[in-house]
Design a protein around this nucleic acid. Structure first.
Lengths: 201, 201
DNA sequence: CCACATCTGTAGTGAACACTACATATCTGG
DNA sequence: CCAGATATGTAGTGTTCACTACAGATGTGG
């Protein structure tokens, strides 16, 4: 098997740079010129490695969700449903205002509405947000089984609610909301989960 | 004063069509060709009337917020803070899944992240979302003064929270969430406001 | 050391974009 | 009914976009 000339850049490092560009400008707002410059490569290398612009986005999303997967595992490891929600939302308040990254969340900033030819990008993002929601839902189902949540609680609705708040916070962060403002939102939001917890009125 | 040839189209009707295109495809995803076709006019008429693409967006946003202003007035007319939140979020669940409009909210779908040259579009949208938030905050300040909210309640944080949930619901709607799913989110979300209401534990 | 496979940089490609020049059409004021 | 002003439709403008042809560089297997 012939090997040929080896690649001169590291794919994951390049993806980190691409992620940042998509995060800041969205899928359609990011240009190949911006992406290649940030990645430190030329267009042919990009296309040889990732196929096309959408392939690059998917690779960047894969890396993003992989990096966040570890964090989500910590979140659902919290002892109660209320603590899961608090850990998730407070963590998001911090992450989405971390100056090391663009504000907000890539799964939202990536593209909520796109033009003709990129219609599936928003759904691609939605699918990945859905994975987080599923993980939350499973955790809340367990919480209900453990008697941590009220018997009348709806785990799927609770997970969808936490996910919705996360997205809303992301949009706010991207348009300038500071960390304290997001923490206040998280703090209020947790109270709805608390209201569904056992031992509460 | 000379009048010249009168305009052959109605600006508000045309704006309604433009609004729909921006709503569905976002600012950058919407092309002049799509806009002019939807509006039933040719590019020179568009530019003579609205200046440029961004001017058209602002005019469409003005119309959107004007149309929603009446509804927001009804929302804040609810008797209690809890009812304000419920009326707002339940109404949004319905509006954002109304088949007469594209799913979601124009103030979100319009563009959360934009490319070079359109950086101010996201802030333009954020400013208009902020107007709704201000209206809610004022209403919650009144609720606190009336003893409807607990003395420890933070009206600004509550308003920001309700606004964040609205945005999150909008994103969910745009990616396929149905009315029932959004109503469940709204139903859970209202409980956080309830927890800040007087007479609750 | 040679055939071949893969990567890299230069320099483009056609298509789609926002926007406009210009001739023509339709109004008002006098 | 004429002069000036504004709107309209046709047909472009230059620019930027995602993407690629091609030639040279750099590796591996025999």
């Amino acid at each position: 098997m012939r090997m040929g000339r080896p690649r001169e850049f590291d794919a994951d490092t390049a993806l980190d740079q691409a992620m940042e560009v998509f995060w800041r400008h969205g899928y359609e707002g990011a240009t190949i010129a911006q992406l290649t410059e940030a990645m430190g490569i030329n267009p042919p290398s990009l296309y040889a490695c990732f196929g096309n612009k959408e392939g690059l986005l998917k690779a960047a999303l894969d890396r993003y969700t992989k990096l966040r997967g570890a964090w989500m595992d910590e979140v659902v490891a919290a002892p109660t449903a209320r603590d899961v929600a608090e850990r998730m939302l407070m963590g998001i308040a911090d992450k989405q205002t971390d100056p090391a990254n663009p504000p907000g969340c890539l799964l939202v900033q990536g593209g909520i509405a796109c033009g003709t030819g990129s219609e599936n990008v928003p759904f691609e993002l939605a699918a990945r947000r859905g994975q987080n929601e599923d993980q939350l839902r499973d955790r809340f189902i367990r919480a209900k089984a453990e008697g941590d949540l009220k018997p009348t609680a709806d785990p799927a609705a609770l997970a969808r609610y936490v996910s919705a708040v996360s997205v809303g916070m992301g949009v706010m962060a991207s348009s300038g909301a500071d960390r304290e403002a997001l923490r206040q939102v998280a703090s209020v939001a947790v109270q709805a989960v608390e209201a569904q917890s056992a031992g509460k009125a």
